[in-house]
């Protein structure tokens, strides 16, 4: 096998390992990351029920709640991660190693997707059992939509990882700022089209917006008309995002590393 390919595959697995093991090893994780977020989405379900909304809306909330797991993971454990690695002193060891920096981020993404998938599945399962939404259908199209959404989403996280590092101390605040405002503009709990076409279209630059919209259309065909675009077009846009974000991530990483080597300090602790 080509040495670069082998090295980078090993690096991906190596970096994914602490994510997978770390998240399984700390037992308190199960309590906080799975059980309690279900309570949070329950609040939204009850609002819809209090307003006597049709049953599909309950489904929207469960779906949005599940996808929250991936969004939070991308924000806190991808975008802010390089900054965090720098603070604990790991980043300079990574920067000195021969593997591609993309495989480092790739490893984080693989590990993060693993943990978040458990979180999301549990949210869906408990949500469906507790709050009977409408009858569900599972068209095959759901699989490519979900996968492409994740690739685009984690690609965006990878891009932010380098940008956050360059922005320095603002990493924490940036991640925090992208919680509620993104839940809102990306339509985590309601059809995004309700924000108006242009707002929804602008929000589509965040992959989760169209990912959610497509999944809503596929899972609840009775309200498919509330979708922003037909699913095929949304898949097309998502594919484009899934290509663009990793490329931009690569450019941002190279730029960040170059800046770090020229200026000194960027990858070093407490600088």
């Amino acid at each position: 096998m080509n040495i670069h390919l082998r090295l980078n595959l090993r690096a991906i697995l190596g970096r994914a390992y602490p994510r997978v093991i770390g998240s399984l090893r700390e037992p308190s994780w199960i309590f906080f990351e799975i059980l309690l977020p279900v309570l949070a989405i329950a609040a939204y379900v009850f609002i819809y029920q209090a307003l006597e909304a049709p049953p599909e809306f309950v489904g929207f909330v469960i779906l949005g709640g599940a996808m929250t797991a991936f969004w939070l993971n991308v924000l806190w454990s991808m975008a802010a991660q390089l900054y965090w690695e720098k603070e604990i002193g790991n980043l300079q060891l990574y920067m000195m190693a021969p593997m591609s920096r993309m495989s480092l981020l790739g490893g984080m993404a693989v590990g993060g997707i693993f943990g978040s998938s458990i979180h999301a599945s549990a949210t869906v399962l408990i949500g469906v059992l507790l709050f009977k939404g409408p009858a569900l259908v599972f068209p095959l199209m759901l699989i490519p939509i979900f996968l492409v959404t994740l690739i685009a989403l984690y690609g965006m996280g990878m891009m932010f990882a380098s940008l956050y590092l360059m922005w320095g101390r603002e990493a924490w605040h940036m991640a925090s700022l992208m919680e509620e405002p993104i839940y809102f503009v990306s339509g985590f709990y309601f059809p995004v089209k309700a924000l108006g076409f242009w707002v929804a279209l602008s929000a589509s630059v965040i992959p989760i917006t169209l990912g959610l919209d497509s999944m809503r259309q596929l899972l609840f065909p009775s309200v498919a008309a509330w979708g922003l675009f037909p699913v095929e077009i949304e898949l097309g846009i998502l594919v484009v995002l899934a290509i663009i974000f990793p490329i931009m991530a690569r450019i941002a990483l190279a730029r960040m590393e170059n800046l770090a080597r020229r200026r000194g300090g960027l990858t070093l602790r407490w600088q």
Partner: peptide, 16 residues
């Protein structure tokens, strides 16, 4: 942040 959290609810109400 808090305004956005509020707007989620406003939109939820408006959609219903």
């Amino acid at each position: 942040k808090p305004i956005a959290a509020t707007m989620i609810l406003v939109l939820m109400y408006w959609v219903v």
